[in-house]
Amino acid sequence: MSRIVVVHGVGHQLGTAETLQADIEPALRGGVALARRRDSDLADLADLADVDDGDVVCAGYGDLYRQSGTRGEPYYRAEDVEPGFETELLMQWWQEAARLDPAVTPPGAEGRGALGHLATRPLGIDSVRRALDALTRSRFFAAVSDRLLISDLKQVRRYFTEPELRQAARDRVAECITPRTRVLVAHSLGSVVAYETLCTLRPVQAVQPLTLVTLGSPLGLGGLVFDRLQPAPEHGRGCWPAPVKTWHNLADTGDVVALVRELAGRFGPDVQDGTVDNGAQMHSMTAYLTAAETGAAIAAGLTA
């Protein structure tokens, strides 16, 4: 029974909770240690000297996306990006990348009008190809191939459109939460999985109030994510997860996945929004976990 539960994002379909934990736990321990060295307010808290063995568990759900009988991920091409959710999310990533980096050719260049104009009619394969080319050449997705970027789009879309997969992912998180759990750390799409799990968690599963730490979260993205949450937002405000006492939300200012970086406007003023600097790895889960800001949020949750 672990005090810290970590929920990963997309792109881990070939991993397991055990293999992911081998990378996640050292990064998390490092972030907490860095926070202690930087924050004098935590210096006298001896119980934060280390994250103890057995304190961290990864709630792995990536294997739910793994396709049996294949060797790795299919060789997706631009033609495989489906109209609707996948294309819209791709275009929003492209628009945000162009806003943050002048070197990225924006949507609507070459006389095609702004993204808002493109969105009023079906987007053709040429627009999809240009979006993929712009993103995979950008500093945000420079190490990501078209094939993997399309796979990520499909994983996000499938979570919201396949009820059985969605519930299975939430079940993986729920089974890791015990009365001993104090902190839930969730990255990227994992923040959606964690949020929805906490909103439906039975009280007996979380006796103590929890601290939620979301990293690079897309939870605030209207239409594609926020408006599809379960339970549904009411009057523009998302439900506050009942087991959560404190919510820290951290985003790198260059993270194009966290399109809405401040969640207080969506979920209430009790969300403590903050920024981190992940360098060239804007959306990396490891970079987020090693940040002192993340370590401080986790440490505070362990001593609450």
Rank of each mutant, 00 (worst) to 15 (best):
A114F: 04
D47H: 11
V213Q: 00
A169L: 02
L302W: 04
R38D: 15
V260C: 03
R266Y: 09
H187R: 00
V271C: 01
L165Y: 00
T19F: 10
G113C: 09
L28T: 09
L210C: 11
A287D: 14
R139S: 15
C58H: 06
R157C: 14
P107N: 09
E162V: 08
R36H: 08
E175D: 09
V193I: 14
A78K: 00
D41Q: 06
A300S: 11
L224K: 00
D101N: 07
P163A: 06
T211M: 01
P122S: 12
L132D: 12
D227R: 04
Y75C: 13
R29S: 13
L90Q: 07
Q155D: 13
V32Y: 06
G84D: 15
V185P: 09
T214K: 01
R66S: 14
P179V: 10
T178L: 04
A251D: 14
R36A: 12
A49W: 02
D227P: 14
T294K: 01
Y76E: 12
L115K: 01
I4M: 00
V193F: 12
Q167L: 09
L215C: 07
L135C: 12
G279W: 04
E82L: 01
D146A: 07
Y65R: 05
A143P: 12
L165M: 01
P203A: 02
A59I: 03
Q230E: 14
P209T: 10
A206L: 03
E88M: 11
A291W: 01
T87H: 08
V104Y: 07
Q205C: 10
I125M: 08
Y75P: 12
K154R: 06
V104N: 12
A35Q: 10
G54V: 06
L132W: 03
L135G: 13
L210F: 08
L132Y: 00
R130F: 13
L34D: 15
M1F: 05
G223H: 05
S191H: 05
Y195N: 04
L259N: 10
L45D: 11
E79I: 08
E262S: 10
H248L: 01
R261W: 00
D270E: 10
Y65A: 14
A264D: 14
P218M: 00
D63E: 15
L123Y: 05
D80G: 14
A78I: 03
A143L: 08
R121D: 08
V185L: 03
S68C: 05
R182S: 12
D273Y: 01
A33C: 14
V156I: 12
R3L: 02
P106Y: 03
D152V: 13
V244Y: 01
G15C: 09
T303Y: 00
G60A: 07
I177A: 07
D152S: 14
A300P: 09
I125W: 05
G238C: 07
A103P: 09
H187F: 04
S40T: 13
A143Y: 11
A142G: 13
T161E: 14
D50A: 10
D152H: 11
R129C: 08
E262L: 05
R261Q: 06
G236K: 06
A49C: 07
T246Y: 02
A119W: 03
V57Y: 01
A114E: 14
A49M: 02
R261P: 10
A59C: 11
A242D: 12
M1H: 08
L189F: 07
L45Q: 04
L148M: 10
F85L: 01
S188Y: 02
S188Q: 06
D44R: 02
